[in-house]
Simulated assay, not measured.
Amino acid sequence: MRITRTGLAAAAMALAGTFGITLPHAAHGTQTEADAMLLPPDAAVDGESFGALTARWWQWAERMPIAPFRDPDGRLCELGQEGGVWFLAGTDGTFNAQRECVIPADRHILVPVINMRRSDVRDRRAAHATPKSCEALQASAAVNNERLGSAVVLIDGVRVSDVTRYRIRSDGCFPLIPEMDDDYAKTAADGYWLLLKPLPPGRHTVTVGANYAADDDGFGRMVQNFEYVLHVGGKSQMASAPAGMDGLLVAEGR
């Protein structure tokens, strides 16, 4: 079995990380303008459930010639994008990413906050190769997500009030490589995701910071940070960054 990490979170462009300024938390139950930009966890786009979209995200990331979570600056943003949902990527946990890209108007946007997958990749020539059950893969993928340290997401500088509401599990298991048969690289995914409604044309920012507070094969203490500057509907004139958005906020659990 192989475990990977990707797109698993990211962090906000805010003075907090560099100068110790604390972002205010939204009061419990208080909705923000950022919340209004999101679809609920039971949403579907073009007949695909939220869970099915996250599975397709993993398949997209696996088949790219260069892993999208290694993108340093947005140069890979357009690779493999198709359909009504545009995929963003996180990082592999080794760097803080600041990316800029142009996306078409009228696309929903899927954002990985922090997440895991477990895949059953077996050498079928080995006599001892025992397939893992979907239930076992689901349980393994859930471990770190049950120990979320923190998660901060800002959309155009406005904080999402409760990221934990958006824990999404794949609809059962799925083939990581669709061209292969269903049992090859059978995969379960679990994590925190946001599904944005189509954004108005113009310049927008999505900033993410999150970490696990668990111990699991080296991934349980993962901390990742990334920001996207999105030019929806075409390249727009660069504007000054929103106040408090010029340093990376690193999310840390205690």
Rank of each mutant, 00 (worst) to 15 (best):
M1C: 10
L8H: 11
A10C: 11
T18W: 08
F19Q: 13
G20T: 09
L23M: 13
A26S: 15
T30A: 15
T30N: 07
M37R: 14
P40V: 02
V45G: 05
G47P: 02
G47E: 01
S49Q: 05
G51V: 04
T54D: 02
W58E: 10
P65H: 05
D71C: 02
E78S: 15
L79W: 11
G80R: 07
W86A: 05
A105Y: 00
V113W: 06
N115C: 15
M116R: 15
S119C: 12
R124E: 13
A126S: 13
A129G: 09
P131Q: 09
K132N: 08
E135N: 03
Q138R: 15
A141V: 12
A141E: 08
N144G: 02
N145P: 00
R147V: 03
V158F: 04
S161D: 08
V163L: 04
R165H: 09
R165N: 10
I168S: 02
D171S: 11
E179G: 11
D183M: 11
A189H: 06
D190F: 00
L195G: 07
L196A: 07
L196S: 04
L199Y: 06
P201E: 13
G202M: 03
T207Y: 01
T207S: 15
Y212C: 00
A213T: 13
Q224A: 15
Y228L: 03
L230T: 13
G234M: 07
S240Y: 01
M245Y: 02
V250F: 10
R254E: 14
